[in-house]
Design a protein around this nucleic acid. Structure first.
Lengths: 152, 152
DNA sequence: ATTTATTAAATTGCATGCAATTTAATTGCT
DNA sequence: AGCAATTAAATTGCATGCAATTTAATAAAT
């Protein structure tokens, strides 16, 4: 790329913009489903982690563990989790062994939401054909590699 | 996907999360460059459009045109552009022909920033090998197809 | 010509993201 | 034990995103 070549600065050539635009477009596509659930997109991601954690680990995750999973810090997660708690989906408890830690437990209502997601998710995927789904799978793997490359 | 199959709800299987995480990771990667320029990421995208517009169209874009390019509305762009104007990079002017429209013009300082970007961008890309760049190109094209599919 | 409908920005309100600081609890060190 | 360093959340401040409403100007319709 020469110093006078501005092709590298064209918006359409910018991977960064495509990622940014695609991410927001996908969030928009999830909006009807999330509205039905009464969740925002990051709230949904947090619930996904909690549902998954419940099935895989005996202990509930801490805010820190959730943050590592989502790559979000306490500045974002503390208020988000307080809202989920207000909604009655999650309980936040200080650990007895270490009062610094906040452990996150699903309430019955929080667990119940999981069952609502599956049919809505299936409906969301209906608008895509097999070709699209295959393409998305390839995209997901490419993103995995990019993420691995960027987390050095 | 059966009603009891939760694999489709695992975070790592969610394309939406990968996109969200990758987009934020790329923005993080741009942070050192953008700090040097004194711009936030969406401000940088707006400047990219203005630089590009200048080379391609005789007329300056309106806020609406910028918004269509970036898929952002006036709620986001009005304050963002006021900040760019405060920094002396952009001028906002009501159109004489239609007082509803705000036209966006680059100042000399705004044009000057473009020259600073190219070397910084080259430096940013240095950390990637040819293999990575090829992969990114494929990723960009995949994202194009996804975006086209979602903008129906 | 007047009224109605449409359009472009601006504004308001709320929920992120994220850097930077603060607070409180725990660990390590001597 | 006593003190410094570390750690986990919470807090603060600022800049988005985006839905919903408002304002002002133009276009359309009668």
């Amino acid at each position: 790329m020469s110093a006078f070549d501005t092709a590298g600065l064209q918006l359409d050539n910018q991977l960064c913009f495509k990622l940014y635009a695609a991410s927001r477009a996908v969030i928009r596509a999830y909006k009807p489903m999330l509205d039905a659930l009464g969740l925002t997109y990051p709230q949904y991601l947090a619930m996904l982690v909690l549902w998954e954690w419940q099935e895989r680990a005996p202990e509930q995750p801490t805010l820190k563990a959730l943050g590592q999973r989502l790559q979000l810090d306490s500045g974002t997660l503390t208020p988000l989790l307080k809202r989920l708690e207000q909604m009655g989906l999650v309980q936040r408890r200080r650990a007895q062994t270490d009062e610094r830690e906040v452990h996150l437990a699903l309430s019955d209502a929080g667990r119940a939401v999981q069952a609502q997601v599956l049919p809505l998710k299936a409906q969301l995927l209906c608008q895509f054909g097999d070709q699209d789904l295959l393409e998305m799978e390839g995209l997901r793997r490419s993103l995995d590699r990019l993420l691995a490359r960027l987390s050095d």
